[in-house]
């Protein structure tokens, strides 16, 4: 059985070590390929398609996506064991949407925990709850993205409505004790005080949720759109100032949740 899980295959496009903003401590992020959403601000546009793609990076063609086994991924992840132990860190699955490959994600998380590695996932949970359930037993921290409370607006900017996300959030909160809500704060989409307050109020209504993270919009993914031959819809949108972010932080904190800027 164990051997079977280790040999399970999935599709990733990057592994990034020494990440300190996606879960506690020093972490390694495994980026899985494929996503249900098409957020306009996505900083990893190469993650969205499940298919293996090519992207121009610094004037060279780069192949995005490779099929790997759980064992291959964990061989890389466990190289930083001493850092996880000292910092309380571990592995975080990101994407794309990890639940797009729920069985692979579950296998990765299960085997990582077996090795004593702390596990986290960054997800929108925008899929059937039966898929979400697969990973919950092997997860120490769930970082759940909630982008907007207005389903119409959500659909307009991400390609999908938000009902399923909100439903799943409630279900996850009932069974998972370490759920953190994260909000990408995007100018022109959800960067007003009322919009952030609504999300915070929803998050506060979920049982055992104590933290909310506001992630300021950044343009670091912009070059990748060019590399993929796509246009960047948010061209010219300026990142928020620290001052504006702090105002939103104060607003979100009114919900009673602990609110921080950045992951």
């Amino acid at each position: 059985m164990k051997n079977e899980l280790l040999q399970k295959k999935g599709r990733i496009f990057d592994i990034q070590r020494y990440s300190i903003h996606d879960g506690p401590g020093i972490r390694t992020i495994v980026f899985l390929k494929g996503c249900y959403l098409r957020c306009q601000w996505c900083s990893n546009p190469e993650s969205q398609e499940y298919e293996i793609q090519t992207m121009m990076v610094a004037g060279k063609t780069k192949i995005i996506g490779r099929d790997v086994t759980v064992e291959e991924v964990l061989d890389e992840v466990r190289k930083d064991m001493p850092y996880y132990r000292k910092s309380g860190g571990g592995m975080t699955l990101s994407g794309g949407e990890s639940l797009y490959q729920a069985d692979f994600a579950a296998a990765l998380l299960c085997e990582a925990q077996e090795m004593g590695i702390n596990t986290a996932i960054e997800s929108t949970a925008c899929t059937e709850f039966s898929q979400v359930e697969k990973i919950l037993p092997y997860l120490d921290t769930f970082l759940l993205d909630i982008k907007h409370m207005d389903s119409e607006k959500h659909k307009k900017h991400t390609g999908v409505p938000n009902e399923r996300i909100l439903e799943n959030a409630a279900k996850i909160a009932r069974v998972h004790k370490n759920l953190i809500i994260r909000v990408p704060v995007i100018p022109g989409f959800n960067n007003t005080i009322p919009e952030i307050e609504q999300i915070a109020a929803f998050a506060a209504s979920l049982p055992d949720v104590r933290e909310i993270h506001l992630l300021p919009y950044h343009r670091l993914g912009q070059d990748k759109y060019t590399g993929l031959g796509r246009s960047y819809l948010l061209d010219g949108v300026e990142p928020m100032s620290l001052d504006e972010m702090e105002k939103l932080q104060v607003a979100a904190s009114k919900s009673g949740l602990r609110c921080q800027i950045g992951g």
Binding site: Y18, S19, H21, S43, L215, P216, H218, L220, D223, G263
Partner: peptide, 14 residues
């Protein structure tokens, strides 16, 4: 470089 929670190799950016 890590800016606002995101890491990137500085020299690969525009």
């Amino acid at each position: 470089v890590r800016v606002a929670g995101y890491s990137a190799l500085f020299t690969t950016l525009s």
